[in-house]
Design a protein around this nucleic acid. Structure first.
Lengths: 297, 297
DNA sequence: GTAATAGTGTCTCTAAGACATTATGTC
DNA sequence: GACATAATGTCTTAGAGACACTATTAC
């Protein structure tokens, strides 16, 4: 019961294939990562995105977003995490849905394709190589937004791009050599409409309401206001006044002074802060295979 | 080649079924509409939403959002418009995607279900009964947002709720008697998680950045500032200072004074305004079967 | 005239941004 | 000591909100 090669007359009985694409952001590429643009150093002034090189037509050899088809027993967020992990060997700390694309298919494939785009954030500590103690891939906690937005959860497999979904078999898996990290300011030419998806994701990230609440996810559990400001500057792509940033960040009410100081720098030590989860969020990390809040039939 | 009754071992080869649910808003219920709550008059102080009564288990007899499965030759927005029209006999002036739900299915159905939620707005003139001159349903222009967000377009059929998608056949269609309009403040108990979807849609609608740009879609092509303020009050559910509203609405820069005045009221006549589409939007209404901007394979 | 909304002017308060100043560590 | 960033304080300006006041129609 496979759908490849269905004739045109059979098509109308086929439900669309469902796949995801993921735009993942990090403040730095991982230490062992290949850089798409060898010229650019890994400064703190830009945002980095992992891309995979396509190993199939169409757009063979071109860069594209990590992604892949949903499997029968995984939710959409599962699929997003699994295919992102297949490309980067790392699990992001944050994942959120962006938008769904469901155009009528015009390619040679037998099925229509519905693609759901996600965006993900990697914190500093999530970029260290994962220790492969457990099964196929890491099981680090992933934070998925609660509140008005909703979601699903994480599992394992290979990594293509979302457009290869219509092929029933997950063949032609991506070797790690086909993955590289790019600065958001210096993206290569991208397959399909992935450039627009990235632009959309960047727009969301740069929207004030978004970055104010997610900037800290690029960092570890504790951080200085200076680091947080650096993140904001990287997200916005422009400098931010330190004094005003401090006032606004603290007025936000979601930063907690840990009482500790960061030492070792060649200047006055900075206070360390934690991010206080909003009361409703319950700060409940989602682990692979969790059953929580699966609110839909 | 139908999928109903697939055994558990077959399931893993089945792609998820894809369906949509639509939260439609109007400032008033249509004149010929049935009201869910006979007590409430049709004042301008609230927002109205059409619901359909389920004719199947689960949640048989309970109210739910209009929706239905995607057909092989229609896009997601097509499906949304078609199933909304099946319920209300009317085509909305605006349609935008909200969120996708893709939980692993736990019901008795053979397939998983991915549901994409949309929200729609009906303008005053879109609530008049449609003149059935052309084919199965109206072909009035529908405005779908451009810019970072993307979409697809409209076609005909019956109207269930999105959760009936897994059944391959669109049987058990909704008679108009099973449709009623409810005030957003007085919703009945809803099937599935539709209450959350509506709350999400209301949240989006009430977000300042959204309602500032969509409020005029509840009205006809020309309107007074007083009417526009009334819409805003209905959306927000609270009074708004007329003077301040005027200043902000005009400062927005998207209202054009037509030079005409509204007469007949027992008070000073008000200027009539049009909404100026932002330059990028090209103000290009989308008609059924259009091929524009279908940007995805 | 009265009633009712349209439309204008003005005051206050808050928050954003610019920028000066002091504090405290490493070298 | 020099240097670098942390942390605080102050001034200006733009905008939101409260509210008083004038304008113009129907009756």
């Amino acid at each position: 019961m496979r759908y490849t090669g269905a004739s045109a007359s059979e098509r109308q009985y086929l439900p669309p294939a469902v796949a995801v694409s993921v735009v993942a952001f990090a403040l730095q590429p991982p230490a062992d990562a290949e850089l798409g643009d060898p010229g650019a150093g890994a400064g703190d002034t830009t945002i980095w995105i992992p891309l995979v090189r396509r190993t199939r037509a169409p757009f063979l050899g071109q860069w594209a977003l990590p992604g892949g088809p949903t499997q029968w027993d995984e939710t959409l967020a599962d699929t997003a995490l699994r295919s992102l992990h297949a490309a980067t060997q790392r699990t992001p700390g944050y994942l959120e849905q962006l938008y769904s694309f469901g155009g009528v298919e015009r390619s040679a494939e037998a099925q229509r394709l519905v693609t759901i785009a996600y965006w993900a954030l990697y914190g500093e500590h999530e970029l260290e190589p994962e220790v492969s103690v457990r099964g196929a891939h890491g099981v680090s906690p992933v934070q998925v937004p609660s509140g008005p937005r909703r979601w699903d959860d994480p599992i394992p497999a290979s990594g293509l791009t979302g457009e290869d979904a219509a092929a029933g078999t997950p063949a032609g898996s991506v070797s790690v050599a086909n993955v590289a990290w790019f600065s958001a300011d210096r993206l290569p030419e991208l397959a399909f409409d992935h450039r627009e998806i990235i632009d959309h994701a960047l727009g969301r990230l740069r929207a004030k309401t978004e970055y104010a609440s997610v900037a800290h996810r690029f960092l570890g559990p504790v951080f200085t206001l200076g680091r947080l400001r650096t993140v904001t500057e990287a997200v916005l792509g422009q400098p931010v006044d330190p004094a005003n940033f401090r006032r606004q960040a603290l007025a936000q009410g979601s930063l907690v002074d840990t009482g500790e100081l960061e030492s070792g720098a060649r200047h006055r030590p900075a206070r360390l802060y934690r991010f206080a989860e909003p009361p409703g969020a319950a700060n409940q990390p989602i682990t692979s295979g969790s059953t929580s809040a699966r609110s839909r039939e």
